[in-house]
């Protein structure tokens, strides 16, 4: 239930940010991360940004395991 997904902030208006999740745009509440800026990545949970995260790492983690798992089976 504590699932949170990384996404990029496209624009900010007050406590609301427009974010990109896998190519879709969505509005989220950023009142819990007042330091978040346009272009940064945040973790999303229940309609809120809950933490600003390291962008490069966020991109690197996607689809990481399948390749490694296949290699480890050999």
């Amino acid at each position: 239930m504590c699932l949170a997904i990384p996404s990029k902030i496209l624009s900010i208006k007050g406590n609301t940010a427009e974010i990109d999740v896998g190519g879709n745009t969505k509005e989220v509440n950023i009142i819990l991360t007042p330091e978040a800026k346009v272009g940064e990545y945040v973790l999303l949970h229940a309609g809120f940004a809950i933490q600003v995260i390291d962008e490069q790492s966020a991109e690197e983690i996607f689809d990481a395991w399948e390749e490694a798992y296949a290699a480890l089976q050999k």
């Binding site: 239930m1 504590c2 949170a4 509440n29 819990l32 949970h45 229940a46 309609g47 809120f48």
Partner: peptide, 13 residues
């Protein structure tokens, strides 16, 4: 309202 510390702040808001 169910949830751990991850969710509780969103309920507080």
């Amino acid at each position: 309202a169910v949830g751990f510390e991850t969710t509780i702040p969103t309920v507080a808001v």
